[in-house]
Lab assay of single mutants.
Amino acid sequence: NKFNKEMRNAYWEILHLPNLNEEQKNAFIQSLYDDPSQSANLLAEAKKLNDAQA
Rank of each mutant, 00 (worst) to 15 (best):
E13Q: 12
L20G: 00
F3S: 03
S37N: 08
F3L: 09
A44K: 14
A54R: 01
N41Q: 07
Y11H: 09
Q38D: 10
Q24H: 08
S39F: 15
A44S: 11
K5I: 04
N9W: 15
I14Q: 00
K48H: 14
D35T: 07
D51K: 12
E23M: 11
W12H: 11
L17Q: 08
D34Y: 07
K5F: 01
L17H: 06
E6V: 04
A10D: 02
R8Q: 13
N1V: 06
N19S: 06
L15A: 05
W12K: 15
Y11Q: 09
D35I: 07
N9F: 13
W12R: 11
Q53W: 07
D51T: 15
L42Y: 10
N19T: 02
Q24F: 06
F28D: 00
Q30N: 08
H16Y: 10
L20M: 05
A44R: 09
Q38R: 13
D34Q: 13
L17P: 00
L32A: 01
L43I: 04
N9M: 15
Y33P: 05
Q30Y: 10
M7N: 03
W12L: 03
N9A: 15
A52P: 05
Q38E: 14
K5E: 15
I29H: 08
F3K: 01
K47E: 09
N4K: 02
S39H: 15
I14S: 00
N4W: 10
E13Y: 12
S39K: 04
S39A: 13
Y11T: 03
E6N: 02
M7F: 14
K48M: 06
A10V: 05
P36G: 14
K25V: 08
N26Q: 06
E13H: 13
E22K: 09
W12N: 11
S37E: 12
I14R: 00
K48W: 07
Q24D: 05
E13M: 06
I14D: 00
N19P: 00
Q53I: 12
L43N: 03
R8K: 10
S31I: 05
E23A: 07
L43Q: 05
N50E: 04
K2F: 13
Q38H: 11
A10E: 01
E45W: 11
N41Y: 09
N19W: 13
L15K: 15
Q38M: 14
A54I: 06
S31Q: 09
N26R: 15
A46K: 00
K2R: 09
S39G: 05
N41K: 13
K5P: 06
S31P: 04
A54H: 09
M7D: 06
D51V: 08
N19F: 14
A27I: 11
K25D: 00
Q53V: 13
F28G: 01
